[in-house]
Simulated scan of single mutants.
Amino acid sequence: MTTLRLSTVALMLAATAAPAFAQDADSCTTVRMSNPGWTDITATNGVAQTLLQALGYQAEISTLSVPVGYEALKNGQTDLFLGNWMPAQQKFRDDLDAAGGIEELVQNLEGAKFTLAVNKPGDEAGVSDFADLDARKGAFEGKIFGIEPGAPANQSIQAMIDADDFGLGDWTLVESGEQAMLAQVGRNASAGTPTVFLAWAPHPMNEAIDITYLSGGDEQFGPDYGGATVHTLARSEWVQNCPNAAKLFSQLVFDIPMENQLMGMILNDGTDPADAASAWLAQNPQVLDDWLAGVTTTQGDPAKEAVLAAIGG
C-alpha cells in the first residue's frame, strides 16, 4: 500500500526552545482546514479551533466535499485535513502521493469502523450479512442510504451495485447529508421499516440507534467491519513554514469515547463545536500535557497555561 511519508520537520523541532514567533511565518496565524460535513471532523476541527485560538492563531474552516477538499489541499487552498479515513480514501492518498507536497503528521484515531448496517427492524427481518439483503429487497424497498454525493463510501456502495455484488445490482443508492440520512433511519426505525445504511464509529448514532453492523463486506469496505484509522494530512510547505502549529497537529490525537461525547454534544444538544470542545477540555485537561508538549503561543508563552485560561480551567 502506497503511503505518504511521515512528517519529520515538525518532529525534529521537538527539542527546539525558540519561541513560536521566531519559528512560524506571519502567514501561519491563519490555519486553513476543511470539513466534509461529517460530525466527527466537525468535532475534531472544533478541538483544533479551540486550541489554535487560545494560542493566538485563527482557524479558517471551509465546508468542502471529500473530492473537493483533497483538491484544495493539493492545490494549496487549505493547509490541513484531519479526516483522512484509511483505507476508504486510499485513492485520494495515492493521488496526493503522486502529486507530492503533502505529509502525514499523525494517525489521529484508531478503532474506527465504516460499513453498511441495518436498524432494529432490519435486524429483526433477519439481516446480519451483506448476503442476506437481496432476499429481503421488498422489505428494504431496494434502497441503501448513503451520505453526501462524492463521498468515497458512496462510491464503494455504487460500485457494489454496478457489479451486482450480493445480487444488489437492481438496488438504488440514496445519497444525502449525514444528518438527513440518520434522521431518515430514525424515522424508519420508529415506523418499523427495515433500513440498510452507511454507519460508522465514532458517532453518537451508535448510542441513539439500535444498529447491527453487517458482516461479509470485507472486499467492499475492508475487514473488521470496515475497520479504519484516521490521519492528519498537511502541506509540506506549511509544515516547514509553521513548525509550532505543525507540532501541535503532530501531537493532536483522539479516541472513540472522546469523539462520541463531542459529537453527541454537537448533534444532540446543538452545541457549537468550539464550545463543545472547550467544555470537554475543561473536564479533561490532562490531555493537554501530550497535545501541547513543546508548543507555545504565537508570542512564545507556554501553551498549556494559555489554553487553560481560555477554557476557564
Rank of each mutant, 00 (worst) to 15 (best):
G294D: 07
D132P: 06
A276L: 11
A183G: 11
Q158E: 08
Q107K: 04
W38A: 10
S7L: 05
E60S: 12
A17P: 00
P223T: 12
L13G: 14
L51R: 01
T3H: 04
A139L: 14
L252D: 04
D269E: 15
A199M: 12
C28G: 02
D123Q: 10
N119K: 04
L262N: 03
S236E: 14
Q286D: 12
P302E: 06
D162T: 14
E305P: 09
G300A: 02
L214W: 01
P204V: 13
L233T: 06
A191N: 14
F249E: 00
T30F: 10
T50R: 11
T78L: 14
A98V: 13
Q283A: 15
E219W: 09
P36K: 04
N244Q: 09
A22W: 06
L82H: 06
G69M: 06
N268Q: 12
N241K: 14
F249M: 12
S190T: 15
G126I: 06
A180G: 08
Q299V: 12
G186E: 11
C242K: 01
Q261H: 06
A112W: 05
T115E: 02
T232D: 05
Q77T: 02
D164Y: 12
G69S: 08
Q77C: 06
D132M: 07
L214Q: 01
A274M: 13
A20Q: 05
T271A: 15
A131F: 01
T212L: 05
T30D: 10
S34W: 10
R136D: 03
M258A: 08
V31K: 00
A112I: 03
E175S: 11
N260S: 08
T44N: 02
W280Q: 05
E110F: 14
A151N: 11
E60F: 06
T298W: 02
V47Q: 01
L116H: 06
R93L: 15
S215C: 00
L109C: 07
T63N: 08
K91W: 03
G313Q: 11
L133M: 10
P223I: 11
R5W: 02
L13M: 15
T212A: 03
P67D: 01
D95M: 15
L52M: 03
E60I: 01
G313W: 09
K137V: 02
A59F: 07
L182V: 13
R5H: 07
C28Y: 02
W200T: 09
L198W: 13
D40V: 05
D210K: 12
R32W: 10
Q158C: 10
A14M: 08
G167M: 10
I61H: 01
D170C: 11
G138N: 05
E219P: 00
E141A: 15
A72S: 14
L64N: 00
A245L: 04
D94I: 15
G216T: 00
I61S: 10
D301R: 10
D272G: 13
G37M: 08
W291Y: 08
F130I: 03
L64A: 03
A88Q: 12
V9A: 11
G142S: 04
I311T: 07
N84V: 09
L168Y: 01
A228Y: 02
G270F: 13
V253F: 10
D97H: 12
A112L: 07
A99K: 07
A201C: 09
I41V: 08
A88H: 09
L182F: 13
G222A: 02
T115Y: 07
A18L: 13
V307I: 14
F197P: 07
